[in-house]
Design a protein around this nucleic acid. Sequence first.
DNA 1: CGTTCGTTTGAGCCAAGTCAATGTGTGTGG
DNA 2: CCACACACATTGACTTGGCTCAAACGAACG
Lengths: 236, 236
Amino acid sequence: MEEAPASSRHDLCQACAIRNQAICSDLDPREIGILNGIGRRRRLAAGEQLMWEGHEAVLVANVIEGILKLSSHSADGKEQILGLVYPSDFLGRPFGETSPYGVEALTDSHICVFERRDFERFAREHPRLEHKLLERTLGELDRTRRWMLLLGRMTAEQKLASFLIEMADRLGTSEADGSTTVLLPLSRQQIADILGLTVETVSRQLTQLRAKGIITLSSRREIRIDVIEELQTIAG
Amino acid sequence: MEEAPASSRHDLCQACAIRNQAICSDLDPREIGILNGIGRRRRLAAGEQLMWEGHEAVLVANVIEGILKLSSHSADGKEQILGLVYPSDFLGRPFGETSPYGVEALTDSHICVFERRDFERFAREHPRLEHKLLERTLGELDRTRRWMLLLGRMTAEQKLASFLIEMADRLGTSEADGSTTVLLPLSRQQIADILGLTVETVSRQLTQLRAKGIITLSSRREIRIDVIEELQTIAG
DNA sequence: CGTTCGTTTGAGCCAAGTCAATGTGTGTGG
DNA sequence: CCACACACATTGACTTGGCTCAAACGAACG
């Protein structure tokens, strides 16, 4: 694909946009060199599937650019999005045979992939990497558990408010007047699949928030949050 | 409390019931000795609180005996149980300042506690322990994500069926006739708090499953599952 | 034996789901 | 460039699963 010649390989990581945020950040130049040897870059188009629920987990990756979703389906076909993965996040299931979820790119993405086996071997030999991975996994577990509270105990309105706050936090650009604009990487259906709701309910709640003057729906995917404090009050 | 004299401390771990399942299982005798020095045993009565949501996380622990719950409260006071912790499971939030959930013993319990700082220092110096902890955390993350699907996309009936299957799996004793009996460590309210339902709905669903001849309610806390296949069909 | 706490049952209601129609971009081929 | 198709989004009408409120029941315990 876009393999660099062996001599310049070393530079791939050095020039990496997420060099200092990802789990590789603690490694010394020699270690980075080895990692470079077993990893490769890969591009994904929006909508492209990287892993399938229940299939063998052959690879893991670092996300360099783009947003991906982890999702799982109930017996009767309903989808539940289990999490979103952002740049510098780690992706995949090391030390496990099968992937418990499917992975799909929501936007055009750029990732740094490793054969799971290669990565595991490297990780076991480099405790600093495993430590980084552990910290990340613990953080991810906390975030996932917070999402359980949302799914189990919040009303549709509270769910939407919480979702918008999170998106503003992650992807928002603040304006001078205190408002924040978010360009959503998700369709209404996908928002519903995150919040455990239906498309119709998501749509209705958004129009209600608009009617209350809390948000402005600039275009399908673009939402401006005019009064974020109101959202925080609703979310609790 | 029940401190052993320094000379016999070493034996505490050797005699430990979960010696070969917990995260300490890979350590050599010397390492076990150090761990012994920084840990201590502690008993908890059913209902006793070990950690508080949002408070500083001062300790971590291994569960030797008993079952504990992790839970969190929404702004309007509703509780959501985020997970159950069983013997040989690890408990607490290493490498984090505050505990994102409360921890309470559901049954009389016996745990092996460490000051978080001490544990962290030891872990960083002993990669085999960190690796075990990583594997455990990854598994816990998978289990938590599976629960998200339940909370977001299942009906009350499916939730109950899934819950009973999980409990039978974890705590059930199989009879000769193919049935399984479970002694629940949870009240109806707590079951509701796990499944994101109300007590009334839990009660109604249980009576319905009984009416269908799938389960028998021997006593409040004791449930016999007569036809587990039926439950699996319902759960999907 | 009465009190208490957890559980079950009942009646009514409401939030969110379902089903169906309409609206709104966006891209495609004539 | 327009018209058509198609996918996504919104809105409306209706239904319903699970919640709320309230009462009755039952086991455990002083």
